[in-house]
Amino acid sequence: IYLGAILSVVAYVFSFPVGTLIATSGVLAIILGLAMQSTLSDVFSGIALNLGRPYAIGDWIVLNDGVEGRVVETNWRSTHLLNGSNDLVVLPNSFLAKVGLTNLSSPDRSHGATLTVRVVPTIGPSAIIDVMRAVLLSSDSILAEPKPGVQIKSLTSDAVELELSFRVKDIGQAGPAKNEIFDLLYRHVKAAGLALARPLDAAGPPPEQLQQEEMAKPHRPTPLKLLDAVPLFSSLTEDEKETLAASMTRRTFKKDAILIEQGDTVASLMIVRSGALIATRQEGHKEIELGRLAPGDYFGESGLLIGVGEAASLRALTFVVVYEIAQASLMPLLHDRPGIAEELAATLLHRIETGQHSFAVEGATLHGRSVSSLVTRIRHLFKVPQ
C-alpha cells in the first residue's frame, strides 16, 4: 500500500514515468536473481540438509563419486570435509543435495569391514574355517559383538576363498584392524601348516610344484622355528638355540582352560604354537581385558628371568598348543656365556618401554629400571657369578 501510494505521488505530482521505472526494476531483479542463482541454491539446500540431518559434525561420509571424509564444518553455503590425507574438501550444499552419499557413522560409530583370503585346500574346509575363527578371536582391534563371521565364497582344486567379516568401533580403526588381521592370518596359517593361495590371475608354477619345492627344503624343527620368532633369544648362536630347543616341552590346553592365574609366579617362558589366548585382569568386581595372544606370541618372560609374578590371567579361547622353556633349561646357557644376561635384560627392558610386554608386570614394578639392575636380578636368580 505504501509503495503504491508513493508511486502514485511520483507519477501524478512529479510527472515521473513510473512505468519505465517498474520495467527497469523488473529487469534488474531478473539479472540479480540469475546472478545469485547458485548462492540461493546453496542457501536453500543448506536449509534442507540441516532439517533432514543426513549427517552431523564428526560423521564420516562417502559420496557416490568417491569423495570421502569426516565432516568438520557445515554452514549456509557449504560443507567442509577432512579427508584421509588431512586435506580440507569444501563442497557446495547444492552439490551435496543432488549427489547420493553414504554415512559410515550412522546409525552408530561402529563400522563393518571384510577381508578376502585364499588358502590352498590341503585340509577340509571346516578345519580351515576353524583357523580363520581363531584369527578373529586373536584380534584386539575388532568388536566381540556383533560376532565376527567367516564364510566360504568359493572352492576349487587350487584354493578355498573365504571372506572374514568384522566390525570396529570407528571407521578410523578399520585400517589398523585390517593390518592386524593380515598379520594374524599369516601367523595362524603358518601355525596350522597351511599355505596362502595365489590370486586367480597370477602367473607362475602350479600349487603342486610349489608344495614339492617347499617339501624339498631342509626341515627345521618346530621348537627352533619358535625360538627364531622370539626377540629375547635373537642373540643366541645356532648351537645355543639347538640346545635350548631340545629342552623345550610341548603342552596342550583345552578351550576355556586357565594357563596362568593372576598373581602366579611362572618360572618358565611359554611360546604359543597354535590357538588363541585372552589376558584379563581382575580389579575389584570388574574383569578387564588386556589383550590377546596368537601363534608366535610368548608370555612369562618376567617370571622366567627375574621372578616377578603375573599381573593377568591367561585363558584359552581355542584349543592351544604352547612350548615351554623352564628356568633349568636356560641356566646352563647363562653359566657358559654370562653375557647372555645383558642381552636378555636389554630386550626385556625394550619390550617394557615400548608396551610390548606380555601383561606380566604391573607398571610400578619394573618401570624406570635400568639394564644393569635387570642384569643383576637375572644373574642372582640364575646364580651366575657377577
Rank of each mutant, 00 (worst) to 15 (best):
S157R: 10
R292F: 08
L381P: 07
R315W: 01
T354P: 08
H285R: 03
P223G: 09
Q173P: 05
D183H: 13
A29S: 11
V71T: 06
I352F: 11
F233N: 08
A191P: 15
S372E: 14
S268Y: 05
R315S: 13
D42M: 11
I22A: 11
M132K: 02
L259P: 15
L101N: 02
F233Q: 05
P92V: 14
G291Y: 10
P92M: 04
V90T: 15
G368A: 01
I306A: 04
G19Q: 07
A191N: 07
R118E: 06
I47G: 03
P121M: 02
D336E: 12
E213F: 06
A5F: 03
Q211Y: 10
S274W: 06
A360Y: 09
L162A: 15
Q37V: 08
V27I: 15
R133E: 15
R167C: 12
T122K: 02
M248D: 04
P231D: 09
L40V: 15
I378P: 12
R337Q: 11
V27L: 14
V320Y: 03
K153A: 14
Q37M: 07
L305P: 14
G66L: 03
L224K: 08
S85R: 07
V99G: 02
S313H: 06
E324H: 05
L344V: 05
R315P: 03
R369G: 10
M215E: 11
E145H: 12
I306L: 03
K254T: 11
L81K: 02
A192R: 04
A29H: 01
N75W: 00
L381D: 10
V131I: 07
E261G: 14
H111P: 00
L290Q: 10
S138Y: 11
D65Q: 05
S313V: 09
I278V: 14
V322A: 13
L232Q: 05
D170M: 00
P221E: 07
D158E: 14
